[in-house]
Design a binder for these strands. Structure first.
Lengths: 211, 211
DNA sequence: TACGAATTGGGCCGCACGACCTATGTAGCC
DNA sequence: GGCTACATAGGTCGTGCGGCCCAATTCGTA
């Protein structure tokens, strides 16, 4: 029998982390660590050098996509499988661009999780990921256009936190006009027509957190 | 050794359902069924007569609180432990009024899950639930006020789905003015000042779904 | 160096939105 | 029969919001 695959789990919900850990151990994987936010995931990935990282998109500090970016930057050979609530095309594309090796929706079966982790090691990519990469290759502007900038994320997060335009402006030390400009840009990128839709889409994509 | 506790799991995410099932089986519980939406939970509760139901608040068809209400209506002796993402006071209160025996945030440990299920059987209630009941007993209007009506939920869901006021009115065959009246009522109940905050709060509370 | 992208701002316009008040019909309930 | 809650709808008023124009600065990078 070969050495067991060394896993790092990153998800902000302890219940899922613990039950997933038990199941993965059952399946013969070696769960070497658990992270509950993006920062911790990056730190532990550095320290433990796991074979595969199972990472949720939605996490505190910074999200799974950003964590993936930082981990891959230091260790391009790292294998990262992303987890999300919703099968969002933009998130899949972002995850792949960040360097993820696989992608799973939380509605999938546990067997799929185990299979995808093994595929990540062997270099194969799941159908979902392949399909998405194809779409990306075809050059669907949909995603090249939808690169939400850091500043735009800050604006979205503040609005999700309950701020109106003047308060967002105050918090970021910019004029209300600039906030509105950022919002207009966000609407175009997220295909939203108002702040409500923009924030909901951002929540679905995991680029904004709901406290 | 006494008979194992017969469990029904209700959560719309297959991954959590399956990993939780494995862990509960490990712990000596007998998982007799799984439901992925509110309707299925009610049906299976009827059919399988489980000792305890572990039920997520956020589910398709109708949410966990409504499912709890319907189950308890037919079988007042049913023991139901609610699961949610966020520790929202209103949701806890609603769940208890609906007849839940316990309450767990998804950030809790697996041991807490097992313990709460056992407590649900023995009739004890968790500290969280007790604290909430105390608050309710103290008569914090906060919650008597915040009974969102069916119509209000319909309005909220349509807005979450991307409808603007005229579209909500059209969908529900009412005037725009009535929609705005419902919204005003919702703002007061959810302590929100605009539709964005109202929808986000509704998502947190699990009374509205994010597709 | 020159180009594009990000970030910052301005002005203008029209409408949607939220606050506040009133009112009617229809239920359910004591 | 009254009481309360819900759903329905109207009006008015101010302003927040989004659409659409434009422009300056600072970057990284091609």
């Amino acid at each position: 029998m070969p050495d067991p695959i060394r896993l790092l789990l990153a998800d902000d919900h302890r219940m899922l982390r613990e039950t997933l850990k038990r199941s993965m151990l059952d399946e013969g994987f070696d769960v070497v660590g658990e992270a509950s936010d993006g920062q911790e995931a990056v730190d532990l990935a550095d320290e433990l050098q796991p074979d595969v990282i199972l990472m949720d998109v939605t996490m505190p500090e910074f999200d799974g996509v950003e964590a993936t970016r930082r981990i891959v930057e230091r260790r391009p050979e790292a294998r990262i499988v992303m987890l999300t609530m919703h099968a969002d095309q933009d998130v899949i594309a972002s995850a792949i661009r960040a360097g993820a090796s696989g992608y799973l929706v939380k509605d999938c079966s546990f067997d799929e999780v185990a299979a995808t982790v093994r595929e990540a090691i062997s270099g194969e990519v799941s159908q979902q990921v392949a399909a998405s990469m194809l779409r990306e290759a075809k050059g669907l502007a949909d995603d090249a256009e939808s690169v939400i900038t850091k500043r735009e994320i800050e604006v979205l997060q503040l609005i999700a936190d309950g701020c109106a335009t003047p308060e967002v402006a105050e918090q970021l030390f910019i004029s209300q006009k600039t906030v509105k400009n950022h919002l207009a840009s966000i609407y175009a990128k997220l295909d939203a027509r108002d702040r409500t839709q923009a924030v909901l889409q951002a929540v679905r994509m995991g680029i904004v957190r709901l406290y």
